[in-house]
Design a protein around this nucleic acid. Structure first.
Lengths: 206, 206
DNA sequence: GCAATTCAGCTAACGCCGTTAGCCACGACG
DNA sequence: CGTCGTGGCTAACGGCGTTAGCTGAATTGC
């Protein structure tokens, strides 16, 4: 009779009642845990980190806060999943930009191989500012992340830098700095950030 | 008998006991408020933001938490003072580097005018990582800051960039990115950050 | 087919957080 | 000598993450 049962109708995805988790990829999370992470992400992106509370998260799912601990050991574990999502999605965005770039280059109207990549990075980060900050403004929980994910997220930029690690790191620092300073409103209101991006990219990758 | 009195010996700048606040500059803070900020800073730099609590702060001063509200309207107001300190000190560090640079340039053994500035920025930030993060990872409370401070902190870099705003912003983003990523341990352990700094600075300012 | 176990919810509560209300001692000043 | 502002105090509130322990339903084992 609790309204929790109403909330579960959101599931309606897995009506498989026999196979528990015998998919090809060993599932990182149970279906319910994935629902929780999805709700956490909605909450974070809509309202920011201050609102992402175990109680509000439970509320949105129609359950009580302590029940969340049946699925995650603590709040940090939920956040780790959000960080993993961000890394994976930004990796996808960069990989997509990479192939788009290659296509354009084939037509020989090359706009500089870093430019599309940087634009993709910026667009993704600014589209998900709270998520980007959550994933970025603390030490990476490397041990709890899917193996290889960090490398995968870094690889497109490294490739674009021709394997030059120093250049790739300098470029990453520039891009992250631009994005995070913009997100936090540290630039003057009238600053021409497009111009600053262009300037930085052009000098870093002439 | 409280150790709060011991904390004041850090000040040792103003032993004037008669004039309350009739200095040339209209004092931003009462002496007691300055003691509180000093204790807050010690706490933050020693133990990080999680330990900077109204209760632990009061503890260190030998008083109870609610008494702090006789001196500051809320915790945020204390943090604003810490942010102001960081901006002022980093401005000083950059200005010092600027004049040192000028002296070296006069002897014509110029190491690139940005290099000393960047080094000073990096050294200051890494010497005060918690303070740097506090001052940097949220919107600037511009309205509550001493007027002109933000500009002053930005000016040395802008001068070194010959007034080129775009270049200055790109360089700032690069430097901030390098520092903040290093502080949060986002680079691989074996990354040669000196090399990445050199690479970035050389390409940004050839 | 029934017992046993696991799962996923619940309530109550703990200790921390920032913050408020209201009390009081003391020193300065008219 | 009274008055009043200053700067302490205690008690308490609501919100936070989290734990302990209960319960009913579903699944599993014999």
């Amino acid at each position: 009779m609790t309204d929790a049962t109403e909330a579960t109708d959101v599931t309606d995805v897995t009506d498989v009642t026999d196979v528990p988790d015998v998919t090809d990829v060993p599932d990182r999370l149970t279906p319910r845990a994935r629902e929780i992470v999805a709700a956490a992400r909605d909450l974070l992106e809509e309202s920011g980190p201050a609102v992402l509370t175990m109680r509000t998260l439970a509320d949105r799912l129609g359950i009580k806060a302590p029940s969340l601990y049946k699925h995650f050991p603590d709040k940090h574990a939920v956040e780790v999943e959000l960080i993993a999502q961000m890394l994976e999605e930004s990796a996808e965005a960069l990989e997509a930009a990479e192939t788009a770039e290659a296509a354009e280059a084939a037509e020989s109207r090359t706009p500089g191989s870093l430019e599309t990549l940087a634009e993709a990075y910026r667009v993704y980060a600014l589209a998900h500012p709270h998520l980007y900050c959550l994933a970025t403004e603390r030490p990476l929980p490397r041990a709890a992340l899917p193996p290889g994910l960090e490398d995968r997220a870094a690889r497109p930029l490294l490739r674009a830098c021709g394997g030059d690690l120093d250049l790739a790191r300098a470029t990453w620092a520039f891009a992250h700095g631009m994005v995070i300073l913009e997100i936090h409103g540290r630039f003057p209101e009238d600053a021409d950030l497009d111009a600053a991006w262009k300037r930085g990219l052009r000098t870093l990758h002439p």
